[in-house]
C-alpha cells in the first residue's frame, strides 16, 4: 500500500496511454499492414507497462503477471506475422501511398499467385 500503490498507478496510466495510441493508430492508418504495425508494437509495450504497474501495486500477483507478460511478448509478434502473411496471400492491397512491394514482385516472378 501507500507509495508502491501510487507508483504502480502512475506506471499503469503510462501503459494505458500506449493502449490508447494503438487504438488511435488502428483508426488513422491507411491499410491493414500499417494498422498491424501500431496494433502490435504499442499494445505489447502498453500491456507490459499496465501489468507491471499492477504488479508493483500488488506484489502477491506478480508471478502470474510475469507469466501473462511472457506469453503476450512471445505470441503477439507471431500472431501479427501470421495475419500479415495471410492478408497478403488473400490479396489485401497496400495503401496507395506505398512505395514498393517486393513480395508481390517475387510471387509474380516465381509464378505462385
Amino acid at each position: 500500500m501507500g507509495i508502491l500503490h501510487i507508483i504502480g498507478g502512475a506506471v499503469s496510466i503510462l501503459g494505458a496511454l500506449f493502449l490508447l495510441l494503438a487504438s488511435i493508430g488502428l483508426i488513422r492508418m491507411p491499410d491493414v499492414y500499417n494498422r498491424m504495425q501500431t496494433g502490435t508494437k504499442a499494445t505489447t509495450f502498453g500491456t507490459i507497462m499496465f501489468l507491471g504497474g499492477i504488479g508493483i501495486a500488488t506484489p502477491s500477483m506478480a508471478t502470474k503477471l510475469i507469466i501473462l507478460v511472457l506469453f503476450i511478448v512471445l505470441t503477439n509478434p507471431v500472431s501479427s506475422h501470421v495475419l500479415a502473411r495471410a492478408a497478403h496471400f488473400a490479396g489485401v492491397p497496400l495503401a496507395d501511398r506505398s512505395v514498393t512491394d517486393k513480395l508481390a514482385e517475387h510471387r509474380a516472378k516465381e509464378g505462385v499467385q
Binding site: M29, H88, L94, A95, R97, S98, V99, D101, K102
Partner: peptide, 10 residues
C-alpha cells in the same frame, strides 16, 4: 500529417 512512407522490402 500521418508521417508514413510504407512498402514491403526484401
Amino acid at each position: 500529417r500521418l508521417n508514413i512512407n510504407p512498402g514491403i522490402v526484401m
